[in-house]
Simulated scan of single mutants.
Amino acid sequence: MPIRYLFKQLFLPPGGLLLLLLAAWWLRRRAPRLALLCFCLGFGGLWLMSLPLVVEQAARALEPASALPAAEWSQLTQRAEVIVVLGAGRERGDPAWGEDVPSLLGSERVRYAARLARVSGLPLLTSGGLHYGLPPSEAAIMADSLQRDHGLTVRWREETSRTTWENAQESARLLAPSGIKRVVLVTQASHMLRARWCFERAGFSVVMAPVGFLGVANARPFGGWLPESKAVWQNGLLLNEALGRLLYPLLYR
């Protein structure tokens, strides 16, 4: 995990773009033209990454799955047997809570899954292992949030996975004794297609329940053309997802 984390932070934006700017400075006398190219790529990449407009357009390309209509929530028992909520990291030791809590994305998934569970009556499975190798697991943190904040008891906790592929494989192992093969899958809209691909290859029939759509009108002044710090984070998530979709079919055939 530390090596994977190191390479990911170094070469994906903004790390990779900052390296280009550093290379431009180092090459400014040795190879001025190459330095100019590195500067343009680094600066231009950071500028694009900071634009809400780029978030909106990139998300539209990565979010082809439609939202699950609210009118269908009460009939989910006809299509699925369990709601699976995928982990999305955690916030460590927030003094306000006095404990680890789901990340912003994780909290969004938990809230949506809780609403689906209340309306449909389906049981819940939380999936997510140790974040950077430290307990408690993401699955346990989400289960605790569902219990304390929404009054819902999680029936299954999958606490060993580290990737989306492992989310699917370990969930299949956990549900196998119950013979469950039909799931409602809750994750971010941009992550949904890759998650569905993994769960289908684990033998599941998937009802998609995406949340957190970014490909909607950004509602920013000047149409989202002004840089914004939040957009850097969101574009980083979208780029990570785009790379994941390219690599997963090669890594997990």
Rank of each mutant, 00 (worst) to 15 (best):
V84R: 06
V84N: 04
V85G: 05
V85K: 04
L86S: 03
G87Q: 01
G87P: 06
G87T: 01
A88C: 07
R90V: 01
R90E: 12
R90N: 05
R90F: 00
E91L: 02
R92Y: 11
R92P: 04
G93S: 03
G93P: 00
G93Q: 04
P95F: 01
A96C: 00
A96P: 01
G98K: 01
E99A: 11
E99G: 03
D100H: 15
D100F: 09
D100P: 11
V101K: 11
P102T: 02
P102W: 04
P102D: 07
L104W: 05
L104N: 09
G106S: 03
G106A: 00
S107A: 12
S107P: 02
S107K: 11
E108Y: 09
R109Y: 04
R109I: 02
R109G: 05
V110M: 03
V110Y: 04
V110G: 06
V110A: 11
Y112F: 15
Y112C: 04
A113N: 06
L116R: 04
L116T: 02
R118H: 13
R118C: 04
V119W: 08
V119L: 09
S120W: 06
G121I: 01
G121T: 05
L122F: 06
L122A: 06
L122P: 09
P123W: 01
L124I: 10
T126C: 12
S127W: 08
S127M: 07
S127R: 11
G129H: 08
L130V: 08
H131T: 12
H131G: 03
G133Q: 10
L134Y: 15
P135G: 04
P136H: 09
P136E: 05
A139S: 13
A139N: 10
A139T: 13
A140E: 14
A140S: 14
I141R: 02
I141Y: 10
I141C: 10
M142P: 12
A143I: 01
A143G: 14
D144L: 11
D144A: 13
D144P: 05
S145L: 07
L146N: 03
Q147L: 13
R148N: 12
R148E: 14
R148D: 13
R148A: 12
G151D: 10
V154T: 14
V154C: 05
W156G: 10
R157N: 12
E158T: 10
E158C: 09
E158W: 06
E159C: 05
T160S: 12
T160L: 05
S161V: 00
R162E: 09
R162Y: 08
T163E: 01
T163Y: 03
T163G: 01
T163Q: 02
T164D: 01
T164P: 07
T164H: 08
W165T: 01
W165F: 11
W165K: 04
E166G: 08
N167R: 07
N167K: 07
N167D: 13
A168M: 08
A168L: 03
Q169P: 09
Q169S: 11
Q169C: 10
Q169D: 09
E170K: 15
S171F: 10
R173N: 15
R173F: 14
L174H: 14
A176G: 14
A176S: 15
P177S: 07
P177Y: 13
S178F: 14
S178Y: 14
S178R: 15
G179F: 13
I180G: 13
I180F: 13
K181N: 14
R182A: 12
R182C: 08
